[in-house]
């Protein structure tokens, strides 16, 4: 799949932002006034910034409001509804903390659940794709939720929680990569089922329908970067999981914490780039590219 920068930025930043909102909703850390304002500003900048980035890849962003209508069937629509509901509820909850020194606990819990729901619905947009076997697994929501909770804990300064959640996310990341590498072959979709010609013999693409490229090839048969996939996995794992844990285990300083957060975000972004760049869509079979 084409690793569109807008979608990578969106899933990375908004995952982190909603992760922070989950912790803030639970009252961890229990902040009020200007400190709460700073936390909420960071969370909203990440969550809303990510959502705005995601609209950049739309053909018609001005019609994006219509995406709230199909929550009965569409995970993308559910994500939109969940995200807006989470942001509204958390805004009310945050206003209580910042301006009135009051923690409306129940509202915070609702906001936390909605924020978690946003991360979950985002992950289901990818998980539901039977056409991309690498994504089509319960490990995908598990991984994306773990990364969001771990990143949120890191930003919220919940060090002990982060020290548990980052390794969990790291283990899920490894499992997701290992399972993903065999997913296409295990899906049962191949040239034989794509063409229905398998009972005659071995099928090979002889001639594509056109000499140039097309939307399908650009969007879904993206091959760039597979060469460095293993190196990038190493970088993603080292920056995203190993380094933050190592830095958190050192005596606490704000400088180290900032480095840990930046390393984590960079690592997750690299992992997210691979999430798309390594994903093989079954339509590639018709072009003999799998």
């Amino acid at each position: 799949m084409h690793p569109a920068p807008s979608v990578i930025v969106f899933t990375t930043l908004s995952g982190l932002g909603f992760g922070l909102l989950i912790w803030l909703g639970l009252g961890l850390p229990a902040v009020t006034g200007w400190v709460a304002f700073a936390f909420f500003a960071i969370a909203y900048a990440l969550a809303v910034g990510g959502l705005l980035a995601s609209t950049f890849h739309l053909g018609h962003p001005e019609r994006a409001w219509k995406a709230f209508s199909q929550w009965r069937s569409s995970w993308l629509s559910r994500e939109g509804v969940c995200a807006v509901a989470a942001l509204l509820v958390m805004a009310a909850y945050g206003a209580g903390l910042v301006f009135f020194d009051t923690r409306l606990a129940a509202l915070g819990w609702v906001g936390a659940v909605l924020s978690l729901g946003t991360v979950f619905t985002t992950s289901m947009i990818y998980t539901q794709m039977k056409t991309v076997p690498r994504w089509n697994t319960p490990l995908t929501p598990a991984l994306l939720i773990a990364i969001s909770l771990a990143g949120g804990a890191l930003l919220a300064g919940e060090i002990s929680a982060a020290l548990i959640l980052i390794p969990i996310a790291g283990v899920l990341q490894i499992l997701w990569w290992v399972r993903g590498d065999g997913a296409f072959a295990a899906s049962g979709t191949d040239m034989a089922t794509a063409t229905g010609l398998g009972n005659i013999g071995t099928v090979r693409a002889f001639e594509p329908p056109h000499t140039g490229t097309n939307y399908l090839l650009r969007e879904m048969v993206h091959q760039v970067g597979r060469k460095h996939a293993m190196k990038l996995r190493g970088i993603a794992f080292g920056l995203g999981y190993v380094l933050p844990v190592a830095l958190l285990l050192l005596p606490f300083s704000h400088m180290l914490a900032i480095v840990a957060v930046l390393a984590h975000v960079a690592g997750v972004a690299a992992s997210r780039w691979l999430f798309f760049a390594e994903a093989e869509h079954v339509v590639g079979l018709y072009y003999g590219k799998r």
């Binding site: 739309l58 019609r63 056409t131 097309n214």
Partner: peptide
């Protein structure tokens, strides 16, 4: 008139039946 050009339907199709028009931004 309702298509926002998100491209998700093209991802969901295993046959490559849907193509986003690059000039119009709709599927």
């Amino acid at each position: 008139a309702d298509c926002i050009g998100c491209g998700l339907c093209a991802w969901a199709c295993p046959y490559g039946a849907r193509e986003m028009d690059q000039a119009e931004g709709v599927m």
